[in-house]
Simulated assay, not measured.
Amino acid sequence: MIAKPSIIIADDHPLLLKGLNDFLIEREYNLVGLANDGLEAYNQIAEKMPEIAILDIQMPQMSGIEIAQICRTKQFTTKIVLITLHKEKELYQKAQELNIFGYILKEFALEEIENCIKTVTDGKHFFSPKIKELISGFSETETENLNILTPSEKKILKLIAMDKTTREIAEQLFISHRTVEKHRSNIINKLKITDPKTNSLLIWAKENHELLK
C-alpha cells in the first residue's frame, strides 16, 4: 500500500477547518498539523516540512500567498494548495506565478480535495475546473469541442473572428468558396452551435477569440 502524503491544513474559520480535518481523518490521510492563522501555519510547515500544505488564502498574521512566497524563497519542498472563496483573476494568476500546486474553491472543496491531493502527490498541478471556467469565461465543453476541430477548421475560425467573409477566406487560403462553406458547416456541427441566426458562428468566434490564439 502506497503511503499517503503528510498534510498540514490551515484556515481561520473554525467550522471550515474542522470540516476539512474530519473529512481527511475519516479517509485516513496523514494529517500532521492544523493551524488557524497564517503565522502558525508557516511555523508548522517550517518545522514539520509536510509534503502538502492546504492553506486558506486570507488568514490573520500571514496570507496563504505570503506563506507560498516565503516557502518558495526558502526552497521548501512542501507543495502548496490554496483554498479560497475568492474568484479574482489576479489571485489565480499570482498562484500560477508562484508555482502553487493546487487552487480550489471552498464551495467545491470536499468534492475536489481528494482528486487535488492525488494530483499534487503525483507532482502535477490541480486548478479547480470551476475556477478556470469562472476566470476564463470558457466552459470545459467549449474547450473540448474546439479541440475536435482540424487545423484547417481552426484557421478558418480565426479568420471568421477577424470578420473575414467566405470569399476573403477562400482567396486567402487558396481554396474554393464551396470548400469554405463546407468547413463552416462542419465547424458549427462540432462546436454544437444551435443558434438559428445566420451569423451565429461569427458571434461564437468573436466571443471566444481568446481560445483561438
Rank of each mutant, 00 (worst) to 15 (best):
N199C: 01
F76R: 02
P14R: 05
T77A: 13
L82C: 11
K48F: 13
N147S: 10
D37E: 15
L105Q: 03
G102S: 08
K130G: 06
P60H: 05
L91M: 14
F138D: 12
N186Q: 13
G102H: 03
S200G: 08
K89S: 14
E107K: 14
K94F: 00
H183K: 04
E111Q: 15
L173N: 04
K155L: 10
D195Y: 00
E171S: 12
T198V: 13
Y92S: 11
E112D: 12
K132F: 00
F138N: 10
N30P: 07
L31Q: 04
K87G: 11
N36W: 02
K79N: 13
M49R: 10
L173G: 04
P129Q: 12
L157S: 06
S185E: 14
R27F: 05
K158I: 08
Y92C: 10
I54H: 02
K124M: 11
N115C: 03
L157A: 03
G64D: 09
L212C: 06
L85D: 12
N99M: 12
K190R: 12
T119M: 05
N145H: 14
T150H: 07
S63K: 08
H177L: 07
L191T: 03
S6C: 08
S63C: 04
L173P: 03
A46S: 12
P129G: 11
L31E: 04
V180S: 03
L31P: 08
